[in-house]
Structure formats: C-alpha cells, structure tokens
C-alpha cells in the first residue's frame, strides 16, 4: 500500500475498500441532510446532538459491562445509548427554547456542554475500572476508521439508503421547513412530525459517524459540503447534488489519504480536504466566490 493512486482505484485490498466505500456513503448522506440544516441556519443543533451522545455511550458501556457482554464494548448497546441520550438532548434544546426565556443558542450551548460533561464524568469513572476494553471508548471522541468491522460497514450502507430515501421522499417538505416553517404550517404540513423526521435522519448520521470521525468533528461532514456547494449554486436541487458529490468525494479522498500516510488521522484528514475545497470555492465559486462577487457589483454599479 504505497501507491496513493492504487488505493484510490480500489487496489488496496478488501478491508481498505470496505473502509473507503463506507466513508463515501457516510460523506454522501451527511452532506445531503446537512443541506437542509444549513439552509435553516440551524446547523449548530448538530453540534449539540453529537456531543449529547457521549453520556449514552458511557451508560451503554456500563450496562453491557454489568451484563457481561464483551467487556462492555457491545456495539448495539453503545449505539442505542448514544441515540437515546442524543434524543434526550434534542428534546432538552426544544424544551428550553419553548419553556424558558433562554434563546436558542444558549439552549444549544447548555445542552452540548452539560451532556458532554456528564459523558466525561462517566468516562472518567470507567477509566478507573481497570477494564481492558475501555480504551476503545476514546475513539468516539476523535474517531478511528482503520479497525472498521464488516457489520459496521453494513450498518453505514444501510443507513445511507434510509437517509437517501428519506430525503428524496420528503425533499419538498424538508425544503419548505428549512426555508419558511410558518408557511409550511399554513399549508397544513405536519411540521412537528417532519421536524422530527429531519432531526432523526441527522441523528442517524451522527451516531454512525461517531466511531469513524468522532463526535467533535462529525459536525464538519454535515455543514461543510453544503457551505461549499452554496458557493457554486443558488438553486436547491443542484446545490444538494453538488453537496452530496463533495461530501462523498472528500470522505473517499480523505480516507484514502489517511490510509496512504500512516500518521494521518482519518477524521481530521477528511476535514482538511474539505477545508481545501472550501478555500478554493470561496475564491473561485461562480455564485458568490470572491472573483465573481466583484464583477457582479460593477455590473450593478454601472
């Protein structure tokens, strides 16, 4: 595995190809669902939810440990725990915004930091348990793709199909919800339910991305492809397609790069690839890149 081209062309063996394909699927569905939250200007809710998974992971580990399953590292327990505590976090944000005088951003910040703190306290307790398998828990913070198991790859692929299907099915509704929630309500759309579906799909992406890129950096996979695509297109359908392409491409390329350079951690490599794309688009993007902005201004001024 010393040729980057060979890795990119799927010549690196089954395990590596599986990792690359999973990364591609994860990137694609994160990018797609991220578009709606980007347009809704509410992407930081993803940050709150991803951090809110931590106490659930800790609790799932402890439960599995108590039941004597695989020393605590039981993927199902960890995933269900993560999902449940993130749902609780999401409900918390909503409750705070609706029932107290705190603003949405303080609600997000409180839930993010306090849930995370609960997770850290649990983790600090687990670390002192002298248990051999607890070291694996750290991967949930910053992610690790290398040791991916076949069932994890399957889960990521299955989820991609669900997210893709959900977004295609509800495309108009999600769009309306992101653009103008009040209007969607006036049209008689079930906005509360749609809202939950949209958040649920995002939560699915977060939970499966946890182990790969980690809870700190999963946010980037959701927001960056949408932001980059917006520099190239002002219309929703091309923007979404582009966003999916960018997300999938960056994850594929980033995962390949990190397999090539042994010391490059996967999550951060993917994000640095996205960062390079963002800088390029910021300058050259035809919709609102720096070069094209100026011409637009002169045109109007003259």
């Amino acid at each position: 595995m010393d040729d980057l081209g060979a890795i990119l062309l799927l010549q690196g063996g089954f395990a590596l190809n599986m990792v690359l394909f999973s990364a591609l699927c994860l990137g694609a569905c994160a990018a797609l669902i991220g578009v709606f939250f980007y347009l809704r200007k509410d992407i930081l809710i993803a940050d709150a939810l991803s951090h809110a998974t931590l106490p659930g992971i800790g609790a799932g580990f402890l439960l599995a440990l108590a039941l004597g399953i695989n020393g605590g590292m039981a993927p199902a327990f960890l995933l269900i725990g993560a999902f449940a505590s993130a749902v609780l976090g999401g409900a918390g944000v909503q409750w705070i915004t609706r029932h107290t005088r705190l603003s949405h951003d303080s609600a997000i910040a409180s839930v993010l930091s306090v849930f995370y703190a609960a997770g850290i306290v649990l983790f600090s307790g687990i670390q002192r348990l002298d248990n051999a398998s607890q070291a694996g828990l750290n991967h949930f913070l910053l992610g690790q793709i290398a040791g991916m198991q076949v069932h994890e790859a399957f889960m990521i692929c299955a989820l991609s199909i669900i997210v893709l299907g959900g977004c295609v099915l509800y495309f108009r509704d999600f769009l309306l919800l992101s653009f103008d929630q009040t209007y969607a309500q006036c049209l008689g759309r079930p906005t509360t339910r749609l809202d939950k579906i949209m958040l649920g799909l995002m939560l699915g992406v977060i939970c499966l991305g946890l182990k790969t890129v980690g809870l700190v950096l999963i946010l980037a996979l959701l927001v960056m492809p949408a932001a980059i695509a917006r520099f190239w297109s002002a219309r929703i359908v091309p923007m979404s397609l582009l966003s999916v392409l960018i997300g999938a491409g960056a994850c594929y390329g980033g995962a390949a790069l990190s397999a090539f350079y042994k010391n490059a951690p996967t999550g951060s490599t993917i994000i640095l690839v996205l960062a390079a794309m963002l800088v390029f688009s910021f300058v050259f993007g035809v919709q609102k890149g720096l070069l094209f902005m100026k011409r637009g201004a002169n045109y109007v001024g003259s």
């Binding site: 200007k41 951060s268 994000i271």
Partner: peptide, 28 residues
Amino acid sequence: TAGRVPSSAAMAIVLSIFFALGVFLLEN
C-alpha cells in the same frame, strides 16, 4: 461577510477546520 455564510455555519466550519488541523498536526 465576504462569503455570506450564515453565522452559525461559519462558526461550525471554522471550529471544525481549526480543531481538525490541531489533531492532524499533533498526530502527524
């Protein structure tokens, strides 16, 4: 301002890139 990215997204992007850069450089 120049990119007209919504402020929440701008924060999310910068946060991720900077932190990722830190992790990358540290490990690498």
